[in-house]
Amino acid sequence: MKELLKTLVEISAPSGYESQVRNQIQEWIRPLVDEMRVDALGNLLAVHRQADAPRIMLVAHMDEIGLMITHVDRQGFARFVSLGGVMPIHCVGGRVRFLNGVQGVIGVEKNPASYEIPPLEKMFIDVGASSAEDCPIRIGDVAVFERPFLDLGKRVVAKAMDDRVGVAVLIETLRRLEKSAFEIYFVFSVQEEVGVRGATVAAFGVEPHLGLAIDVTATGDTPKGHRMEVQLGKGPAIKIRDAGMLADPRLIQWMVQTAEKAKIPYQREILEFGGTDARAIQLSRSGVPAGVISIPCRYVHAPSEMVDMEDVENAVKLLGRLLQTPSPLELSS
């Protein structure tokens, strides 16, 4: 699964510009599904049919946070804004790669009054140009962080782990899938990082009976880190709540019981910020019971996000088990 993950994280696909990763996923899963389509916003929907079974929507988002150019000045320096939650602290000294392959570094305006990290408006990208004319970058071009995959053994590091690790979990689940208690819609969504937009329209189209997002969550296990209980390596996290939703208690119970029965380690997650595609599913149409399997991830939205491969493996196992376990809900259509 490491190879799968490595290939995924090294693709550039900022929010709104997901085609490269979508093409790769399509190529991999085409032989494994009954039907596949791309919708008007660019979501990839793949169906694993199961007659007379309730419909479950599984979603992982394809997009990663990135940058968009707003202005190239006379000297060829490019100003930018973020696509999704790019934090200034992670930009200083960073390198970026544009979709057309151009690379550059992020510079910062000097601010003699303080050593505080300035906002993104005080930063610029230098692609080695010396004037606007010879700058290969134009207003509207988009970029992502440039950072190769780092294999630390049990743990791995990369940019875009959020949420290519979720994409990897879905693909691996699909590869191992034998029988299922559900008709499964595997949704690889777009524009999650800018406000769960892809999942909003995908859920409307799929009309699932229940939905699960597979996404990363923060951890509290680093020095003076977030005040939360989730740790790396202690198993996938079953979300109880985040800033965007309260996960459906019936689904929480279903996941907890399934994990305990199968002796899969799990954690209970409360995240006081952030949100996932599940929130869009929950409020779709007449409402859809929705939950999240989270992959614990350190340094979320930094260019070096770390996950533990055992957590990833256990997430695949848990999801596989869940798909064989009828949910406790009454799911008449």
């Binding site: 409020l283 149409r285 007449s286 409402g287």
Partner: peptide
């Protein structure tokens, strides 16, 4: 349901 969190209960019921 869930007015205090998402205003979601009334809206989803109304959709139904």
């Amino acid at each position: 349901t869930q007015e205090e969190e998402t205003l979601g209960g009334a809206a989803t019921s109304a959709f139904q």
